[in-house]
Simulated assay, not measured.
Amino acid sequence: MASMRNGGMWLLPAVLLGLLGLGFHQLFALRFDAGDVYPAYSSFRADPLGAKILFEALEAMPHVDVEQRLKPFAEMDGTNSTALFLGGSTGSLLHETERDLRPFVESGGRAVLAFGSVEPRINKSKKKDDEPKGDSAEMNEWVSVSESDGRIDWEVELEEFVRSDLTEIEQETEALPEAAVGLPSIPWKSALWFSELGEEWTVLYRYLGKPVVVERPYRKGSLVLLADSYAFCNEAMVQDRHTAFLIRMIGAPARILFDEQHLGVHSQEGVMMLVNRYRLQGVLFVLLAIAGLFVWQRSTSFIPRHEEESGPNDIGSGVGSMSGFNNLLLRHIPQKKLLETMVSEWIATFARTPSMQAKRTRLESELRNLDAGKHPVETYNKLTQILNERK
């Protein structure tokens, strides 16, 4: 019984820990399903700020391989492929992708780089020198990089509308296509625009007369720059989707890559990464259940154990002849009463056993004919011989 009680003591904490782990799993599952743990415009994010709807829509298309890229593009072949960089920081997106993108674009890939929406800031002429530098302060630092150092020469600058343009920005909510493009207008949320465009660039869309979507060929591939990523996000997919615009930006490749690394989402190979990749969550839960059963089995027995509750001086059906004789001696019975007491105890034990009635009669007869001068041990041996006789 003690082992069963110990098993119960182990089982209760195990059940409580299991319920606690299940609760944490559900909590994190809800967070990751919504995706708000990921940056804005991430294809893992399912709320209005993410791009999961576009990713899943493209993934459902036949004959198209869609991938969430968590590693650098270095030395990747871009043949018949499109890479989407959505929601990038204005001061770092091009710096981080220039060198990695060059082999991809040169081999025939199409790179679509869309910046995150930026609110209009104060007038440049009023900006103080000691004001903290952010993305806006880095606008013009990545322009016209030479190809001699192994980078792409972008030949473009990025500017912002300032507060003096706020009235026009509030009134104008769409970017208009160039006449030759033949595309519909699209919703626009950002104050960014491109300037100092090189001859290779073609303007596709303008906002307040400024270029906001531009495209250029580069070797075998092409580059597309967008000053806003809103048209790709989940909110736009639900409320104001423009399929023709998306097709023009992405093209018709056999492979589409959603880059997540520029948003800070990196791949870290580990046990849980392999579990998620090969969908082994069920196997993991089975292993945990087996481990719990092993601990339970080691702490208790499924078969109840027999525990003797009889004391050292008790005689029962499970006690042998020598043990019974020793118990009689320990009770300090007088020598004259020893054999009589022994027989009385035997009769009391087997009084209801039919097969022992014949031996009972012989024992009582032998005890009545007992020679008073005979040694008790000899008489005990005689009585034992009677008990051991077989029919």
Rank of each mutant, 00 (worst) to 15 (best):
A2T: 13
G8K: 04
W10E: 09
L11D: 01
G18Y: 02
L19A: 14
G23E: 14
Q26T: 13
Q26R: 13
R31I: 12
Y38R: 00
S43G: 11
G50E: 01
A51R: 00
L54N: 02
H63F: 14
V64D: 04
V66R: 10
R69S: 14
G78Y: 01
L84Q: 05
E96N: 07
V105F: 00
E106Y: 09
G108A: 12
A111H: 02
V118Q: 12
P120W: 09
I122D: 12
I122A: 14
I122F: 15
N123L: 13
K126A: 15
K133G: 10
D135S: 06
M139Q: 08
N140E: 11
D149K: 05
R151H: 06
E155D: 15
E155W: 01
E155V: 01
L158E: 02
R163V: 04
S164V: 07
E172W: 02
E172Q: 09
T173Q: 13
L176G: 03
V181F: 10
G182N: 09
P184H: 02
S190R: 03
S195P: 00
S195Y: 05
E200I: 02
G209N: 05
P211G: 05
R216F: 01
S222M: 01
V224Q: 00
A231L: 14
M237I: 01
V238C: 02
Q239K: 10
F245Q: 00
M249V: 06
G251K: 00
A252P: 08
A252E: 14
A254E: 09
D259L: 03
L274P: 03
N276R: 10
Y278K: 05
R279I: 06
F285Y: 14
V286T: 15
L293I: 13
L293A: 13
Q297A: 11
S301I: 10
F302T: 15
E307D: 10
E307W: 04
N313E: 12
G318S: 05
L329E: 15
H332A: 13
L339W: 02
V343N: 00
A348G: 06
P354A: 05
M356D: 11
K359A: 14
L363W: 04
S365P: 00
R368Y: 14
L370H: 13
V377I: 13
V377G: 11
T379Q: 13
Y380H: 14
T384C: 08
E389A: 11
R390E: 15
K391T: 13
